[in-house]
């Protein structure tokens, strides 16, 4: 366990450094003068020049970069010029809503994906397998934002069963979470299907059957348990893609999370917020990749014990 952390930690630190550098370069290459943005376009040229000087924008790029790295290392991500607050505070304020949405979507994706995948992989029944394949192909091909709008049209406007936008109650969470979950239901179902189908051929399944367990008992107690390992890993690895999907879904449902913040910040050229939000998401993903590695070795003794004398 410690060995894995010790091996992966430098890689994680390197990746974060690369992420900081990449975002710094994108924002610096972007057209538009940060000083003009901050002070407003009706300021006099002298005022803009003064601000450029005090922001250090006249210094060479590498010096600005080192300065920025130093700030990031001390936890200073600059101020949001629109909200006049520290950018990281703004971003962290939006994080709980996004986590609520993504965790709910993860739960839906895992439950539905495991069910569909076990049905498809566990039976010799070709029809069920075909049906699940068709469902997963559909789930992966739907544009999420369009699914969201169709759900609003159907459940909020036609049947008036759920609120169409906003957050606060459990009813508000249903549609965004389901919309976000669909492609990941497909991913978990496909993985579970192949994993279950593989486990079905193992000897312990024959043993379980021959000692008189019913087929559902064999499936849940023996096959599914052993098929869970790749699922746990893929859930951790896919969480980043889920955060990306949330950016789009939050905008459909006016969900007050990181995603709607990022899109607004990009549109308003509020670069401090863009940088803070993207780096926070990158940080979450780097940590989760480490967690996936650890979970994999914790759950599967074959991996945990590999390489030991």
């Amino acid at each position: 366990m410690v060995r894995i952390v010790a091996r992966r930690l430098p890689v994680g630190a390197f990746v974060m450094w690369g992420a900081v550098t990449l975002i710094f370069l994108i924002v610096r290459w972007a057209p538009g003068d940060p000083a003009t943005l901050l002070i407003g376009s009706d300021a006099s040229p002298a005022e803009i020049a003064g601000l450029r000087e005090s922001l250090g924008l006249n210094e060479p790029l590498w010096s600005q970069y080192l300065h920025y790295l130093g700030q990031v290392l001390t936890g200073d991500f600059g101020n949001s010029y629109r909200l006049d607050q520290p950018a990281m505070a703004v971003v962290l304020g939006r994080l709980p809503a996004t986590l609520e949405l993504t965790v709910a979507a993860t739960v839906i994706a895992v439950l539905a994906g495991l069910t569909l995948g076990t049905i498809a992989g566990g039976r010799a029944d070709r029809v069920a397998d075909r049906l699940v394949s068709a469902i997963t192909l559909g789930f992966q091909s739907f544009p999420t934002f369009w699914v969201g709008i169709m759900l609003i049209l159907l459940l909020a406007l036609t049947f008036q069963a759920l609120p169409s936008a906003g957050s606060g109650t459990a009813a508000h969470l249903v549609m965004p979470a389901v919309t976000l979950a669909l492609p990941f239901v497909a991913i978990v179902a496909r993985l579970t299907r192949s994993s279950v189908a593989e486990s079905m051929r193992e000897l312990y399944v024959q043993t379980a059957r021959s000692k008189g367990l019913t087929e559902p008992q064999v499936l849940v107690g023996h096959v599914l348990r052993n098929s869970l390992i790749p699922v746990v890993t893929v859930v951790a690895l896919q969480f980043g893609a889920l955060l990306g999907g949330a950016v789009v879904v939050e905008n459909v449902f006016a969900w007050p999370g990181l995603g709607s913040l990022v899109v607004n910040a990009v549109a308003n050229r509020d670069y401090a917020v863009v940088q803070a939000a993207t780096l926070l998401i990158a940080g979450v993903i780097v940590v989760l990749n480490l967690v996936a590695d650890l979970a994999y070795s914790a759950l599967d003794p074959r991996i945990r014990l590999a390489g030991r004398p």
């Binding site: 890689v11 390197f14 990746v15 974060m16 690369g18 992420a19 990449l22 975002i23 994108i26 924002v27 972007a30 057209p31 538009g32 980043g240 893609a241 955060l243 990306g244 999907g245 950016v247 789009v248 990022v262 899109v263 990009v266 549109a267 050229r269 670069y271 863009v274 993207t278 998401i281 990158a282 993903i285 780097v286």
Partner: peptide, 24 residues
């Protein structure tokens, strides 16, 4: 391989939003 690692630390759509959003 390190370039992969760095780029994969961002969800693809997020990076696309930031890049397409800040340029013309």
């Amino acid at each position: 391989t390190r370039c992969f690692d760095v780029l994969l630390a961002f969800p693809g759509i997020l990076l696309a939003i930031v890049i397409a959003g800040v340029f013309e």
